[in-house]
Amino acid sequence: MKKKKIELNQKYLILIIIIIFLLIINLVLFLKRVIAPKQQEEQAITNSINNNKNKTKEYKVPQTDEEIKAYLATLKEGNRIEYYCGKFIKLIDEKEYEKAYKLLYSEFKQNYFPTIDDFIKYVENFYPQSYALEYDDIDRYNNIYVVRLKILDYNSSPSDEPKVQRVVIRENDYNDYVVSFQVVKEAEE
């Protein structure tokens, strides 16, 4: 039988290359859109099962600056301010005084705590050994927020009035803020 010669001219060749290229793209898209979601779904089911086993174990606290910023971007204005306030108090609670001192507004520092030792002395006198915080109120004046906190001392008797602390915060950007707070004379001495 005589073989029929197939003459491949240049046009056919270009066409073949284009078709192969398109096939590759289609294959990639198929793998991404069809196979990957299935894997994700399976992964989600696995995660959900694991979460149910131990929820706290799977919860990821934002650690890096990027993660914190991304987390803050999901929060509303009031919640962001509460976050900053809580972060500042937590630093004091964990005796990370240097970090807390760095967050203070420069003029406030000059006015009330020219040295970090002044600051440490004050906060150690003011804050109880063990306490809980309750956010009472937030007022806003342009870009300045005044947060009213109640400090509930675990060691005080139930009849004792909780200490009240006003914390002033200005947010420049996500996770970029300055803090000052109401200095109570008694604790200063």
Partner: peptide, 29 residues
Amino acid sequence: YSLQSYSIVNNIYVYQIKILDDFLATGTS
């Protein structure tokens, strides 16, 4: 200060101004 539009009546613009100490510098102390 803090400025806030309060009402608009017949092209008269009423703004509320709050004049306060620099709370950030005083911490409201």
